Amino acid sequence: MAERALIVLTFAAAIGSGVVAGIFFAFSSFVMPALGRVPAESGIAVMNAVNITVYNPGFMALFMGTAAASLLLAFGSYVWWDSLDGKLLLLAALTYLVLCVAVTSAFNVPLNDALAAADQGSQQQADLWVRILNDWTFWNHIRTAAALISAIALTVVLLHQNGA
Score class of each variant (00 low, 15 high):
A2L: 14
V8M: 12
A14N: 08
G18N: 03
V19Q: 07
I23D: 05
I23T: 11
F24V: 07
F25N: 12
S28K: 12
F30E: 10
V31Q: 00
M32S: 11
M32C: 12
G36D: 02
G36I: 04
R37V: 08
A45K: 07
V46G: 00
A49G: 11
V50T: 07
I52R: 04
V54W: 08
N56I: 09
P57G: 05
G58W: 13
F59H: 11
F63V: 02
G65F: 00
L72V: 04
L72C: 08
L72Y: 01
D82T: 15
L84R: 10
L84N: 09
L88P: 00
L89V: 02
L91G: 11
A92L: 00
A92C: 03
A93G: 01
T95Q: 05
Y96Q: 01
L97V: 13
V98W: 02
V98I: 12
V98N: 07
C100I: 10
A102P: 01
V103C: 11
T104F: 06
S105N: 15
S105F: 14
A106L: 15
N108G: 02
V109T: 02
P110F: 01
P110S: 01
P110T: 04
D113A: 02
D113F: 01
A114F: 05
D119S: 13
Q120T: 15
S122H: 10
Q124P: 08
Q125L: 11
A126R: 15
D127G: 13
L128Y: 04
L128Q: 00
L128S: 05
W136H: 04
W136S: 00
T144Q: 11
A145I: 15
A146T: 12
I149W: 09
S150L: 09
L154T: 06
L154N: 05
T155A: 15
V157L: 10
L158D: 06
L159N: 13
L159Y: 10
G163N: 13
